[in-house]
């Protein structure tokens, strides 16, 4: 870090940068959530399935986020692990309308939590129970039960219901994440 960078960070002018991994099954709304969080002039009009990954950036009040928006399609999920080392935090998105694949989501989550790069780190995980606008959507509590989130003991986690299309619930989640990261760094 150059002298100028140090100076600005000490003055609090420059925002701290954090890397966040955005994971979850395909069609759960990861890219849509990230798109909503971006400043409105940078938002994309139409969202297409991500192939591989894409890097997006957005800022909250205190932090500057760099998000690795990973593809959720089955054949790309094994590529997630290449980026586990980089993440300071994880956003895990669940389609709360898709009861059928809830087990798959749990399975992927367990694999993630048991990965050597993740297992022993106290890394905050933010869960979005997305698509709560759907009529038959499960509630955040049910989702957390189905995924057995209560078993996660060594990492701070938080679940909030969201509707990425309208942008509801997203800010709440990001604020939680921001607090966690601040607490970790200091």
């Amino acid at each position: 870090m150059g002298l100028f960078d140090k100076l600005t960070s000490w003055l609090g002018l420059k925002k701290k940068e954090v890397n966040v991994l955005c994971l979850g099954l395909d069609n759960s709304g990861k890219t849509t959530i990230i798109n909503q969080l971006k400043p409105s002039n940078a938002q994309a009009q139409d969202i297409v399935p991500t192939i591989g990954f894409s890097i997006e950036k957005f800022k909250s009040s205190g932090l500057s986020f760099t998000v690795f928006d990973m593809s959720g399609q089955g054949r790309y999920r094994n590529l997630w692990e290449h980026y586990y080392k980089d993440g300071h935090a994880i956003i895990y998105v669940i389609d709360s309308g898709d009861k059928l694949r809830m087990v798959v989501a749990k399975d992927e989550l367990d694999t993630l939590l048991n990965h050597p790069d993740i297992k022993h780190r106290r890394i905050p995980i933010l869960f979005f129970a997305n698509k709560m606008d759907l009529r038959d959507a499960l509630s955040a509590v049910t989702v957390s039960q189905l995924l057995c989130l209560e078993n996660i003991k060594d990492k701070p986690w938080h679940i909030c219901a969201s509707d990425a299309v309208k942008g509801e619930g997203l800010q709440e989640g990001v604020e939680w994440l921001q607090d966690q990261i601040r607490a970790m760094k200091t």
């Binding site: 192939i51 591989g52 990954f53 790309y76 590529l79």
Partner: peptide, 12 residues
């Protein structure tokens, strides 16, 4: 292997 990982980044 798996070079298709950059597909979305490149399309962007």
């Amino acid at each position: 292997e798996d070079v298709i990982i950059v597909t979305s980044s490149l399309t962007k």
